[in-house]
Design a protein around this nucleic acid. Sequence first.
RNA 1: GGCGGCAUAGCCAAGCGGUAAGGCAAGGGUCUGCAAAACCCUGAUCCCCCAGUUCGAAUCUGGGUGCCGCCUCCA
Length: 482
Amino acid sequence: MALQIYNTLTRRKEPFVPLEAGKVKMYVCGVTVYDYCHLGHGRTYVVWDTVRRYLLSRGYAVMYVQNFTDVDDKILRRAQQEGATMEAVAEKYIAAYFEDMDRLNVLRADSYPRATQTMPEIAALIDQLTSIGYAYSAAGDVYYSVRRFAEYGKLSGKHLAELEAGASERLQDEELARKQDPFDFALWKGAKPGESAWESPWGAGRPGWHIECSAMVKKSLGETIDIHAGGEDLQFPHHENEIAQSEAVTGKPLARYWMHNAFLNVVNQAGTEEKMSKSLGNFKTLRDLFEDFPPMALRLFLLKTSYRNPIAFSLEALKGSEQNWREMEEVLRLAPWLAQQGQSVAGDILFDPWVRRFNEAMDDDFNTAAALAELIALGKQLAGRYHAAIHGTPLADPVRFAREWCTFAFLCDILGLKAGEPEVRPSALPEAEIEAQIALRRQARAERNWMEADRIRKQLLDQGIVLIDHKDKPTTWRHADL
RNA sequence: GGCGGCAUAGCCAAGCGGUAAGGCAAGGGUCUGCAAAACCCUGAUCCCCCAGUUCGAAUCUGGGUGCCGCCUCCA
C-alpha cells in the first residue's frame, strides 16, 4: 500500500502522488512572532516535521518552506508595550522559536520567508489581483472581492450565503464601510499614524495577513505545490483566502494536498476541553515545560496521538510519555555498550517485520500513534534483553540484537526522537575506587553490618553509581543516568 | 444559526465489517538482609445511548446525548 494522505480539500484519504516524481514541495504556515511558543505550537511543528522526515525516509527530496509572519497587529501592540520596534519584537521571538524547536529536534526548514522580506512580491500580487478585477482599493486599503472567486469556500465547505448570518454581528467596524461586501478581506491596510509602513501604489501601509503566504509560496516553491499544511484553525479563513488569491491569478491549484493538524486542548475547571491558546490564557509555553520534562518526552507525547485527532493535555498523560521516553532513551544510548560487545552500531537494519509495520502505519496518513506502538514494542524487547544481559544472562544472538538496535535507532530518527547527552555525568569515580567500595560493602554485608553496607551504597549513588546485587555473583554497577 | 470533528478500561490511545493493539498508572508475585533495578501475572463479555442493515458491527445506516473546533486574531 502506498502512502495515503487525508486531503482537507476532498475530505478523503488519497494516494500521495507528487507533482514531480520523487520531489515534494511543502509549505507550512508558521507563527506570528509576538510571543513564546506554547505546546500547541509545538504540536503543529513537530507534526509537520515528522511528515517531512517520513517523506525523506521514503526517498523523496522534500523542499520544506515555513514562513514567519513578522508584520501584524499583535506584533505592533507588543512592540508598543515593550517600547521596542516591530522588528526587534519579531527578531526576539524568531530567535526563541528556533531555540524551542531545536530542543524538540524539529529540522530547520529549507527557507523561512518573512513578510518584511517579501514586500515586492506581495505588492506585485496585489497589483495583479487588482488589474484582473479581483481586488479594489478603498481609502488606502485594498480588498479582495470574494464574490468574484466562484470557488470560494471549496476548502472549508463554507458557503457565503451561510456565513452571512454570523457576519451580521460584527458590522460595527469602520473597515466594513469601505468593503463592498462584508466577506471581502484586506490585501493591503493603509497605515495609521505612527505605524511601521511600507510604500506601495496604494499608499503607505502593510499587507494583510493572507496575502503574504500566497506571495511566499509562489516565490519560493512555485504556482502549484504538493503539500500545504497548518493548524486546523487556518483552514478558514486563512487557507481559503490563500486559494482565492493565488488561484485567481494563476488559474492553477495552489496545492494538491491540504493538510491540517488538530489542536492541543486543555481540560478546564469546568471539566470540559478547550483549545490551548494565548487568548484563553491556558497555555504552557514550551520553555516552561522544558523545565519539568525532557523535550523528547514532549515530542513523544505529541506523536502518540495521530495528527488529526485532538490531544487532551494532562500532566498524567505527559508523565506516561516521559516513562516511555526514559526507556527508549536508555536503549538509544546503548551504542557504546554494543561496541563493547563487539557489535556494529552502524549495521544493517531489519526490514522485517519492524520497518514494514512501521511504514504501514505511517503510510496510512502518517499514523504516528500506531507507528509508535511498534517502536515502543521493539524498544521494550531490546530493553528486556539488555537488562537480562547486564544481569548475567548473555545475549542469545548479539548480531541480531545489534541489527534490531540499528533498526530501532533508524525508526526513532524518522520520528525525530533523539537521545540527549546524559545530563549529569557525575564526577566519574575511577573504576578501581568503585570496586574498592564494593569490596568494602561486601565485607560489611558478610558481617551483616547492614547500616554500613547501605551507607556505602548510598554514598556511591550520590556519585551517580548504582549498585546491582546478584544472588550468585558479585555486585555489579552502572552509571545512574544510563 | 451554519460547517467540520470527536465519544474505546483510572489516564492516553490504535482499530475503518470478522469477533477489542500498545503504553502509563494500579494490584499481585519472583528476586533481595532491606532496597533499587529487572522480570512475570492480572485487567474492557465489551467500545456514549436507542433502533436498523448483516451470517457477523466498536467499525455501516438512521435517530438521540455529550464534548470540541471553525464561522473574529489564533498552530
